[in-house]
Amino acid sequence: MTTIPVTTWSLEQTSPGDLLPAAAPEGDVRIARAEVPSPEFSRFLYASVGGDIRWTDRLGWPYARWSEHLGRPGVETWVAYERGTPAGYVELEPQDDGVVEIVYFGLVPAFRGRGIGGHLLSYGAARAWDLAERWPGLPGTERVWLHTCSKDGPHAMANYQRRGFTLFDTKVEEETLRAAPGPWPGAYPA
Rank of each mutant, 00 (worst) to 15 (best):
A87R: 13
D18L: 11
A126C: 02
R30S: 15
E93A: 01
L121T: 03
D96Q: 15
P37V: 00
H69L: 01
P39Y: 02
V103E: 13
V75K: 00
S38F: 01
R30H: 13
G74Q: 11
I31D: 05
A64P: 11
P21N: 14
V90W: 06
P94Y: 09
G140Q: 14
T77G: 00
D18R: 11
K151I: 09
S48V: 04
A22G: 07
F111E: 01
K151Q: 15
T85P: 09
D18Q: 10
S38M: 06
G60E: 07
L146V: 07
A110G: 10
L120D: 03
A87Q: 12
R112M: 09
F44Q: 12
P16L: 07
E101T: 00
R72Q: 15
S150F: 08
E26T: 11
A87T: 10
L146D: 06
T77Q: 14
W61L: 08
P139G: 14
L120V: 05
G50Q: 12
V79A: 09
A23K: 14
R30V: 15
V103R: 02
I31M: 07
P94R: 07
A132H: 15
R127K: 14
V90C: 14
D57F: 14
W61C: 08
F41L: 14
S67V: 00
R72P: 01
P139D: 15
F105Y: 13
L92P: 12
I31F: 06
W135A: 01
I116M: 02
D52Y: 06
W78V: 01
W55D: 10
I31E: 04
A126R: 08
G117T: 07
L138M: 10
R112P: 01
L92A: 04
Y104L: 13
E91G: 00
R114A: 08
P94E: 11
W78Y: 14
R112T: 05
A128G: 12
R143E: 12
A64Q: 14
E101I: 00
G118W: 03
P16I: 09
Y123D: 09
L120G: 03
G74A: 08
T141W: 07
G17H: 12
H147V: 03
